[in-house]
Design a protein around this nucleic acid. Sequence first.
DNA 1: ATTTTTCTTGCTCGCGCGAGCAAATGTAAG
DNA 2: CTTACATTTGCTCGCGCGAGCAAGAAAAAT
Lengths: 340, 340
Amino acid sequence: MPNQKRPPFAENVTADDVAIAAGVSRWTVNRAFRKDASISPKSLQKVMVAAERLGYLPDLRAASLASDRSNLVALLIDDFANPHKLVMMERLTRILRREGWDILLVNTLNRDDAGHALLNASQRRVDAVILIGIQFDDDVLETALQARRFRKLIVFARSSENPDTISIAVDDVGAMTELARYVHQRGYRRPLFVAGPQSHSAHLLRKETFLEYWGKHFSFQPESVTVPAYDPALAATIVMETLSHRGPSDLPDVIVCENDALAMGASDVIRHKLGLEIPKDIAITGFDDVPQADNPNYRLTTYRQPLTEMVEYLVKVLADPEERDLNRLFTGRLIPRHSA
Amino acid sequence: MPNQKRPPFAENVTADDVAIAAGVSRWTVNRAFRKDASISPKSLQKVMVAAERLGYLPDLRAASLASDRSNLVALLIDDFANPHKLVMMERLTRILRREGWDILLVNTLNRDDAGHALLNASQRRVDAVILIGIQFDDDVLETALQARRFRKLIVFARSSENPDTISIAVDDVGAMTELARYVHQRGYRRPLFVAGPQSHSAHLLRKETFLEYWGKHFSFQPESVTVPAYDPALAATIVMETLSHRGPSDLPDVIVCENDALAMGASDVIRHKLGLEIPKDIAITGFDDVPQADNPNYRLTTYRQPLTEMVEYLVKVLADPEERDLNRLFTGRLIPRHSA
DNA sequence: ATTTTTCTTGCTCGCGCGAGCAAATGTAAG
DNA sequence: CTTACATTTGCTCGCGCGAGCAAGAAAAAT
């Protein structure tokens, strides 16, 4: 019995207990914990002293039930092999918490599971759902919206065409055009595009933008391959399959990847499997500027999304009560490094 | 007005609405959604049909308020530069959700913030708090326990000495002894130990175990350095500072790191800054077996924690109503690779 | 057919708080 | 010292559900 002096769980101390201790009414106690409420400095003081002594803190479940605002957002996420997810989660959790939002984290296993995950979130009556997974294609979104269960459905870090969602993303067309122009001007002429999962529009946008740019300037469509997940190891396998049996003249001179996760896999293959040098034999570009992109093993030329700015905007969107067009595209920055 | 046919948020349909539609009482409706409840197949069917049609799902806030069980656990986490955190989060979120637990994700910014984060979680009346951060030293734990606000305080993936917390971790002493013996038997004789943040006991355990082993077999304490975060880039800086001005005979022949994040940073320095070869000039070992450890750039000899097994046990701990000793140490596996 | 047992259903009450109003108190103006 | 007005406080009612019991229905036993 280790817990003799210390009961393992506090008997619930409620606002009533504090009210008695402070000599005020229950409602004054609760008001003391709301920033908008009108309360005299004297009673605020009395309440806070009593609350501190009794260890009282308002129950947010009850507050939410009564006010119909939960101050909770659900974060639906998959694609855990992609290191950029860790960066996004860090930024989102830090800034949202600073603004008073709590986060319900849901790992959506696959496309079929996405619907369940959304229902799950809805049962907690979250104020908004933030999607940063790759599995939320238009069908899934449509189904979620049919249920009319969410005040705000925010697609983060990729653009969504759906008119009933709020999309906060980087301008893929502008970004990829900039990357294509860079690759073009550096003199590369035989690109291979490495695309991620085909299930949604945002990243198709990057691929299409690149292919179109190239088609316009050289009147041929560059080769492209698809990797079914943003997983460096998987990307390595696919790139290896694609390139291993080719002679030197058949190899691309630059591999343009939809994001850094894929670029890291491609880079590993070029250097360690094919024994070639980056960027001399084959150059590489990525997208996202994950921390590893700056690692001496990669030194990836990539494109940095203004993540903090995007999350700050997300915070504003969450607080916005109006019903209006909140979609927004952000412009990032090309980060030239050694790889291309 | 994009939402003409589709109101943006469903009017709240409650159990009462379903009850009327199904021709039963409100309590029968709620019972239909509880797996333990006794209800006839006929009324279950009626309720489910009506619920489906109206788009009803029970409100978990209200359920929690009434039953005093939230089915929510808070996950307090920091150290987002460590790639192992992404692995842990994936495993935890996947398995906990499968078992019906929802997760409140809290990013604890620093040690001072840990207390606030705990209070924050307590206001949602979570059933348990899982700590996988590095900032929860005994002082913080003690403060949290003083408040007697948590039914279960689970320290995951590191051992805690505190008798009022439940620790689910790998056996650091056993693991590090195995690693030390491996390094010893491979013939290395001038180790440098790279330790992480000093703020808590678990990782001191790894360091102490290694130093003791070496002291016992060679009667001298190997050198060690401390990195203030599990960040590969930071580890690289510190290791560089430590080694850059030394002649070849002064260099260690093996760098034993407290985990893979540090090992990756050390590896980068050895190969890219010092221009040395691994393992010929300097060998390296890590801990955790993160996905990147198997990457051709690292090929880290490391120690794999049985993470799935540990999370499965965590699930059992969460479901356990009894008040008894639930601490447990797990044994992992040494993964020999090229780096040592 | 009647009694006993089991299963199912409905109900009272309460979980802890907030919206919104009415009463009370305080403050300024005449 | 009143009257007018602003600020603060207390209160009724309801948010949506669950525990636990009592009444009702069904099944089993006599």
